[in-house]
Design a binder for these strands. Structure first.
Lengths: 198, 198
DNA sequence: GTGCGATGTATCGGTCCGATACATCGAGGC
DNA sequence: GCCTCGATGTATCGGACCGATACATCGCAC
């Protein structure tokens, strides 16, 4: 893909957890990835060969393609979990690419996230319990709302974990689930709804 | 307060919406505020005058105090709303200081936030409707979870707006609401909270 | 035929974070 | 009595990211 397209794809895929990637972040990142050899510039074939060089310094759209090494590195990245894997954005990114990794990784990350949210929940309960009379009604309402969100997310995660253990696809799209699937290293992958864009 | 204390206070007050302020942000900000004249260094009185100068370059805790101009600027800041007022963090900060501003401002901000969340909600519905078959089951589940959070927040905001219009304190701690309060410029401030564990 | 919004690449200044350094102090273990 | 460890406290530095902006092309509606 080229940058603009990539941005749109990611915005659709990650829209639930974060705003669009900024250009100030996108283009430098693409160059970094290229410098590392994880993507290569795959110059778009001009419609007719002779019509392109006319324009002065027009950059034109730059199409990138992931390399074998890049794929390898990507697989490593989504499978390995550091502390930032469990914060809101980090977890969202990992989760959005769950279909590309194996069940053990998915379970590990879901459980790590649950632990993190449980900690946040306890912190909020603490504040609501101990500091309640020091805080005004609006601040308290904010904490309550946050606490509610935590409890809700823990339940959501627990459902996902249970589904994962039972080998089923994520929760409950009441659609008829499609597709037997085979995979190289993972025992029981979830149904991929469709897929495969390089 | 001094920096460390301020950080703890803010962490408790804003814990529901964001992580602790980093030191790399806190101390430069304090200096910026001081340079602008909005806070002043109010050197902590040493326990006994002669015992302090002994230590070599020890900075000791630096206590700051807000100035009259700082208070004025703060009141302006929480009352004025830009685009960033309605994103997650910005809204949380405004909301956490709602008790310091007037009802008209509170309503304006609550409604702006609602509009923003409704837009996000529509975006997610769009993706779930149009791009559903292009995305894998996990990504879809992420969108669904995000959509659910949006719907929930809109309901929460609507409750708050209704309460605000009726002049009552924020939502529903089933406590007997306490406190007659007077205030300089605001028509009907909310009761300052009593304690409460749900 | 012209303006305007979508498409597309790119940079720059500023802000914030994470890691780290350094110093003091009280509590607890041995 | 000594020593380590965690909490308290101020501070900086490099790097990542955002928001604004610039500039160019293309298709379409009016």
């Amino acid at each position: 893909m080229h940058g603009y397209e990539l941005r749109k794809e990611l915005t659709a895929k990650l829209g639930a957890i974060r705003a669009a990637i900024s250009y100030g972040s996108l283009y430098p990142t693409l160059r970094r990835l290229q410098a590392a050899g994880w993507i290569v510039e795959a110059a778009e074939t001009p419609a007719t060969a002779e019509e392109v060089p006319a324009l002065t310094s027009r950059r034109g759209r730059v199409v990138y393609k992931i390399t074998a090494e890049g794929k390898e590195r990507f697989a490593e990245l989504i499978a390995q979990a550091g502390p930032e894997t469990y914060d809101d954005t980090g977890f969202g990114v990992h989760f959005a690419f769950f279909a590309r990794t194996d069940q053990a990784t998915r379970l590990r990350i879901l459980e790590g996230r649950r632990r993190k949210i449980e900690e946040r929940r306890e912190g909020l309960r603490d504040v609501l319990g101990r500091a309640a009379e020091r805080l005004d009604a609006y601040t308290l309402e904010l904490q309550r709302h946050g606490l509610d969100a935590c409890e809700r997310e823990v339940r959501w995660l627990e459902e996902l974990i249970a589904n994962e253990r039972s080998g089923r696809a994520p929760t409950v799209p009441p659609t008829g689930t499609a597709g037997g699937r085979r995979e190289d290293n993972s025992p029981s992958p979830p149904g991929e709804s469709r897929e495969e864009r390089p």
